[in-house]
């Protein structure tokens, strides 16, 4: 099992490189304790542009199990995680999974990564200084960071660190009922 690293968003944005200054998570990768966001509560609203500039909202994917993944081009663990996320999207789209990549980075760099790694799910662009991570429960502003929404749009799980097959199977798969008729992306 590969090690999971987390990154301090603000510090590394200043440093501007992905490989320098690794910081291992000092806390457990338990659900982040954001105020008013215990598991099972409605998710905050989300309206962000994608890489074409078109504004997207969560309503577009209502009824699906949504995995929001916060990442940036300078976050090297995020680069490793994306390969797995692509695989999950391809394998489980037909069972109702929808991964959304929330890039807290410059659009051009996000677009380059999308092209280079062949990301198959929507990539939305967020301003790293807009408070979006805090709004979604990552009060320590560390990435990679993922939030899982059930089919009713409720937050059921938050995770700081690299997702792997074990965690995905434990947390996400149970929400994807077999034989669902939701169309694949």
């Amino acid at each position: 099992m590969s090690p999971r690293w987390v990154w301090t968003l603000g510090t590394l944005a200043v440093m501007g490189v992905g490989l320098a200054g690794y910081a291992f998570s000092t806390g457990p990768n338990a659900p982040a304790a954001a105020p008013g966001m215990a598991g099972g509560e409605s998710a905050p609203s989300l309206a962000l542009p994608d890489l074409t500039g078109r504004t997207r909202t969560l309503d577009e994917w209502r009824g699906r199990v949504i995995l929001l993944n916060f990442w940036a081009s300078w976050c090297s663990p995020c680069m490793y995680e994306i390969d797995d996320l692509i695989r999950y999207q391809k394998e489980y789209a037909g069972r109702g999974l929808q991964i959304l990549g929330i890039g807290v980075d410059a659009p051009r760099k996000l677009a380059n990564v999308r092209r280079s790694l062949g990301i198959v799910y929507p990539v939305l662009v967020a301003d790293p200084m807009s408070g979006i991570l805090e709004r979604w429960g990552d009060t320590r502003r560390m990435i990679p960071y993922s939030v899982l929404l059930d089919r009713r749009g409720r937050v059921v799980w938050r995770y700081r660190g690299l997702l792997n097959d074990e965690v995905f199977a434990d947390k996400v798969l149970p929400l994807l009922a077999p034989g669902t008729s939701v169309a694949a992306d």
Partner: peptide, 14 residues
């Protein structure tokens, strides 16, 4: 050494 930076580079730089 530039493995993790490569995906974010412009096509010409890659």
């Amino acid at each position: 050494p530039f493995a993790t930076q490569m995906p974010s580079m412009e096509p010409e730089d890659q």
